[in-house]
């Protein structure tokens, strides 16, 4: 290896909004999101895209934790469910204003995650996975068993749509813009976060926790903070979900959902904001398109998780550009 080998600058973090390109990228992405229902003319696909938006927020929350800070959580569905049931119960049983309920629930869920986070995130690797899974399963059982509050296995119905004044979010198109409004803000804030002091510290913890701590990074606190942030995003997604659906039942918040989210993040790209969206898009659209082969999706997820981890650990968001570069190599200018 020659010591004079020229190394060319990498663009490691594909999501650095400080550069003009990245601002343009976000702008193009936002416009695409805003324009998407146009060609679909408010049809069935618009409805599907609402769920892409909700799943994007969930995947983003998990990716901040898993892809950036390197801490796994198999209990994300618990926070999603707490958000949904929190909003659902407060608005139906206690007639609380939905927006107020959403805020109250989001803050409480984040606070809960913050408190639980201290003992949970002291664990590492496999133990962390099992503990978060445990939290998820307990929450799922609680949704089923607290029948008086949640309606139990038969679900909770009659949840109102969100409204601003007399304007009701009662159609697919309106809900699309509602959900994606939230999702776009979440994307922008996440992009900001990952390219900042806090984001760098999280990535440092991922690469080497010991070195990060020796650099003065309070790893324990930061991990818990990002855990709470991901819970906050999941709870918001849950609140939106319950108002869009107006009906919720425990199956939407089972262990299987946590695994689906994990699959989205791994397929899209660990440690990439846009990767989370790509993963959410693919994994929400595919089962819709594969309706004919209904039960295949779980087999498919399994195969995807294994093969992506072995052959494409960077996810599609990095794999596709790499593939293009291989197919059409651009001549590099030697500066």
């Amino acid at each position: 290896m020659s010591p004079h080998r020229k190394l060319k600058p990498d663009s490691l973090n594909p999501d650095t909004p400080s550069s003009p390109q990245e601002k343009l990228k976000f702008l193009v992405f936002s416009l695409a999101v805003l324009a998407a229902p146009w060609p679909l003319a408010g049809g069935y696909l618009t409805n599907v895209l609402i769920f892409v938006g909700i799943n994007s927020m969930l995947a983003l929350g998990l990716n901040l934790l898993l892809g950036y800070a390197g801490q796994i959580s198999l209990g994300q569905a618990a926070f999603f469910g707490l958000g949904a049931y929190g909003s659902g119960v407060l608005t139906t049983r206690f007639a609380m204003n939905p927006w107020l309920a959403m805020a109250v629930v989001a803050v409480s869920v984040a606070a809960f995650a913050f408190a639980v986070g201290f003992p949970v995130l002291r664990l590492k690797g496999h133990y962390l996975a099992m503990a978060t899974l445990g939290v998820g399963v307990i929450a799922h059982i609680a949704f089923n068993e607290t029948v008086d509050l949640t309606g139990g296995p038969s679900g909770l119905s009659g949840i109102p749509n969100l409204a601003v004044g007399s304007f009701q979010f009662d159609s697919d198109l309106k809900n699309y813009y509602l959900v994606w409004g939230f999702a776009l803000v979440a994307v922008l804030l996440s992009l900001n976060l990952v390219d900042s002091r806090v984001g760098r510290a999280l990535r440092a913890i991922h690469d080497s926790e010991v070195a990060a701590r020796v650099m003065g990074v309070n790893a324990r606190l930061l991990k818990v903070q990002v855990f709470a942030l991901s819970a906050l995003l999941s709870a918001l997604a849950g609140s939106l979900y319950c108002h869009v659906m107006t009906f919720i039942s425990p199956t939407s918040f089972s262990f299987h959902v946590s695994i689906e989210l994990l699959t989205m993040v791994v397929i899209g790209g660990l440690g990439s904001v846009y990767g989370s969206i790509l993963g959410a898009l693919l994994l929400t659209l595919l089962p819709e398109m594969l309706r004919a082969f209904q039960d295949f999706d779980i087999v498919f997820y399994g195969l995807l998780l294994i093969s992506m981890t072995i052959y494409l650990p960077g996810g599609l968001v990095r794999g596709i550009p790499a593939l293009f570069r291989r197919l059409w190599p651009v001549r590099r200018s030697h500066a």
Partner: peptide, 19 residues
């Protein structure tokens, strides 16, 4: 492999077998 990818692979195997 990192523990993370091992976790993901064994989870993948688990749902594959189940499916």
């Amino acid at each position: 492999a990192t523990p993370l990818s091992l976790i993901i692979v064994t989870i993948g195997a688990s749902i594959l077998i189940r499916g």
